[in-house]
Computed example of a mutant assay.
Amino acid sequence: MENNKQDLMRAIQVKFPRLSKGQKLIAEYILKHYDKAAFMTAAKLGSSVGVSESTVVRFANELGFSGYPKLQKSLQELIKNKLTTVQRIELSNDFITQENALKGVLKADMENIRATLEKINHKTFEDVVNSLFKAKKIYIIGLRSSSALAEFLAFYLNLILDNVKVVAYGVSDIFEQIINVSEEDVLIGIGFPRYATRTIEALAFAKSRNADVVAITDSLLSPLAAKADYTLIAQSNMASFVDSLVAPLSVINALIIAVGLREKEKISRTFSTLESIWEEYQVYSYKDKNER
């Protein structure tokens, strides 16, 4: 089943006459409220329309899905880049309350990491590491909520490789900052729903200059992935007004460590020097020297 609203909705409409009475209630609900249905469990969806959980599962099978989770994922793919922040707040109220916020969010983040471990391509990961070592210059762009990820990645890569530049909103336009990108360089774009337009355009620009383009995003269907030579998948599902960046940060941590493991001696020298500088200029709070 293609992750396309028109195809999925059309399939429901075509099947509608042959559905059971209970399944028709589910179909009508999804056709009207697919944005809400996408984040409901089978039991919750069934309860909302007055049918059993097993009826919801059979409905998914009737549409050609192997189970309800596949139908749910298809619905989520339709709407995750279209939801406004207000809609995300409304949806979050369906499964996260003040009473269960801590447990609900932590469990969702655990699931994101588990799904990322299953989806990410290990060979692609190694190819990205290799491309970073071959690059003359590494550009990193992540806008809006992804800017924190871009800064974090750049901070540590710069300690190891010395040739990293963050591309961000500022005095210069995005394109002015990457005007000299070439086939000798790598551009890493980080973006999750709702995808920042400028990030997508920056990846397209770098690709037109024959640079290696890396996307860190949530799906191979992401508009960033469409512009990339290498795509690292990190699941970020969170039906809330706050983006879930736990799994993306974990992938970025792995990338930094993989690069660092190839430059152990250099890192050791760098941090040895930094420790002396940090102590001399009191960058960090140190206890009495005898206690360290």
Rank of each mutant, 00 (worst) to 15 (best):
Leu63Ile: 03
Tyr195Ala: 13
Val186Lys: 03
Pro248Glu: 06
Asn253Gln: 08
Val181Ser: 05
Asn290Leu: 14
Glu183Ile: 14
Phe175Glu: 05
Thr197His: 07
Ile178Gln: 02
Tyr139Asp: 04
Asn163Cys: 13
Asn112Lys: 14
Ser74His: 05
Phe152Tyr: 13
Ala108Trp: 02
Tyr139Cys: 04
Ala196Gln: 06
Ser54Phe: 11
Asn237Ser: 12
Val129Thr: 04
Phe152Val: 02
Tyr34Asn: 11
Ala154Val: 07
Arg292Lys: 09
Asn210Ser: 13
Glu263Arg: 15
Ile26Ala: 06
Asn100Arg: 12
Gly50Gln: 08
Met9Thr: 03
Leu249Asn: 05
Val171Met: 12
Lys266Pro: 04
Asn130Lys: 10
Arg114Asn: 14
Phe16Ser: 03
Val164Pro: 02
Asn180Pro: 00
Gly170Asp: 05
Tyr284Asn: 13
Ile89Asp: 03
Phe16Thr: 11
Glu265Ile: 06
Gln76Phe: 02
Ser172Pro: 00
Ala226Lys: 13
Ala115His: 01
Asp243Cys: 10
Glu118Tyr: 11
Gly22Cys: 08
Pro69Ala: 08
Asp229Gln: 09
Ser250Arg: 11
Glu279Phe: 07
Gly104His: 09
Glu265Pro: 01
Ser172Gln: 13
Leu153Arg: 03
Lys24Arg: 15
Ala37Ile: 09
Leu106Val: 14
Thr84Met: 04
Lys36Gly: 07
Asn158Gln: 07
Val166Ser: 05
Lys137Thr: 14
Glu265Phe: 02
Glu90Leu: 14
Ala239Glu: 01
Asp109Leu: 14
Trp278Cys: 12
Gly104Leu: 11
Ile160Gln: 11
Tyr169Leu: 12
Lys107Met: 15
Ala150Gln: 04
Ala135Gly: 04
Val167Glu: 04
Ala135Ser: 11
Glu77Ile: 08
Tyr281Val: 15
Ser285Phe: 05
Lys119Asn: 11
Val251Lys: 03
Ile141Ser: 02
Lys266Trp: 03
Leu25Phe: 00
Leu31Ile: 11
Gly50Asn: 12
Ser250Gln: 11
Phe155Gly: 00
Leu78Tyr: 01
Thr197Ser: 14
Ile257Lys: 10
Gly104Asn: 12
Asp94Arg: 14
Ala202Met: 07
Glu28Ile: 15
Thr197Lys: 15
Val171Gly: 04
Asp173His: 12
Ala206Trp: 04
Thr116Gly: 12
Leu31Tyr: 10
Val181Gln: 04
Asn81Ile: 08
Leu153Met: 08
Glu62Met: 09
Arg18Ala: 15
Thr97Asp: 06
Ile252Ser: 01
Lys15Gly: 08
Lys137Tyr: 08
Ser47Pro: 07
Leu63Arg: 01
Arg269Trp: 01
Ile257Ala: 06
Ser219Tyr: 02
Asp173Trp: 11
Lys32Met: 07
Gln13Tyr: 08
Met110Arg: 12
Leu78His: 01
Ala154Asn: 00
Lys73Phe: 00
Lys136Glu: 12
Leu255Ala: 02
Met40Asn: 00
His122Ser: 15
Met1Gln: 10
Val57Asn: 07
Leu31Met: 15
